[in-house]
């Protein structure tokens, strides 16, 4: 269960989220654009995406160079008096695939880290994509009233109990 509080200003929402996090609650912050300092306030660890990128790049380089070497040695088709395995062209193939695999691994890393895609019902308020800032407070089945009080105390101007579900059944 969770309760979503809507805030009019980013500073208040951020302060509320920080205070609630510090108090040991499970909180997430929703905003129409990235808020400076939100990741630190909510104690998010450094993004592990860089490891995905690095791994993808290395894998891409070995795959690119490996593919070129492998395919050149299936049938020996000598061309232009060059070696069967000339380094400059094959390194170039490796270079391009470094980037291709790097990009794909970064995308994969992002999707895993951000827990997307999530085509299912989740607590959400569409105002947070326009001009409101939402603080989502996780709570027990009987703690909703208490959570609402906390959010009100932190300055929430509206409360969505259970949250607006996404995707909504009808258009808004």
């Amino acid at each position: 269960m969770s309760v979503l509080g809507l805030f009019a200003r980013p500073e208040t929402a951020l302060a509320a989220a920080k205070a609630l996090t510090d108090a040991g609650h499970a909180v997430s912050l929703m905003s129409p654009y990235p808020i400076e300092g939100a990741a630190e306030a909510l104690r998010l660890p450094r993004s592990p995406i860089r490891r995905y990128t690095l791994f993808g790049g290395l894998l891409g380089f070995s795959c690119g160079f490996g593919l070129a070497v492998f395919s050149a040695t299936r049938h020996l088709l000598p061309t232009g008096g060059r070696p069967i395995i000339p380094l400059p062209p094959f390194l170039l193939i490796g270079y391009e695939l470094t980037i291709l695999f790097g990009v794909l691994a970064t995308l994969l890393g992002f999707l895993i880290c951000a827990r997307l895609p999530a085509w299912r019902e989740r607590p959400y308020a569409s105002e947070t994509a326009v001009d409101k800032y939402g603080v989502l407070l996780e709570c027990g089945a009987d703690g909703e009233a208490e959570a609402e009080t906390r959010l009100r105390a932190a300055g929430a101007e509206a409360i969505r109990r259970g949250g607006e579900l996404m995707p909504p059944e009808e258009g808004t």
Binding site: L77, P78, T79, G80, G81, R82
Partner: peptide, 18 residues
């Protein structure tokens, strides 16, 4: 029938080779 033929290296599908 050049030993270092420019035409051979450029073919993407290795349709020409030595």
């Amino acid at each position: 029938h050049c030993a270092s033929a420019p035409c051979e290296t450029v073919c993407p599908v290795a349709a020409t080779y030595h």
